[in-house]
Amino acid sequence: MKHLTAINRKAKRVEEYIAVNEEEDDVFALQQGPPQQRPHYPVGCSLVFSPGWEVDVTGGTAGLCQPVERDLYDCYISCYWPAQVPDHLNNYPDWTSKCANATKDWRKIDLVFP
């Protein structure tokens, strides 16, 4: 090796190993763990406790989906969360038709009995 200088004993062993295996294209000189898994950014609700993410992206609670009136439409129109809101896509397309403004008219929304 010309550009890396082995300093400690393990580095010297790595260097020797590389020299011996020079001919092979991909030398596995060392044991190395699997490729790192990086976290992805979630879109939508979490798997179990939607919409109750425990913390928001800043680690606090201010940006959480609050279980309040205005969330009705979030849940109803965009994702349909069974047991919390009726199924808008298939069975209850008119569930919110009497409710123009959820924060004012939410009392007009009735229960459904599937």
Binding site: T5, A6, I7, N8, K10, A11, R13, L30, Q31, G33
Partner: peptide, 9 residues
């Protein structure tokens, strides 16, 4: 994880 130490040029 090897623990090897190399100097860089």
């Amino acid at each position: 994880p090897s623990g090897a130490i190399f100097a860089l040029d």
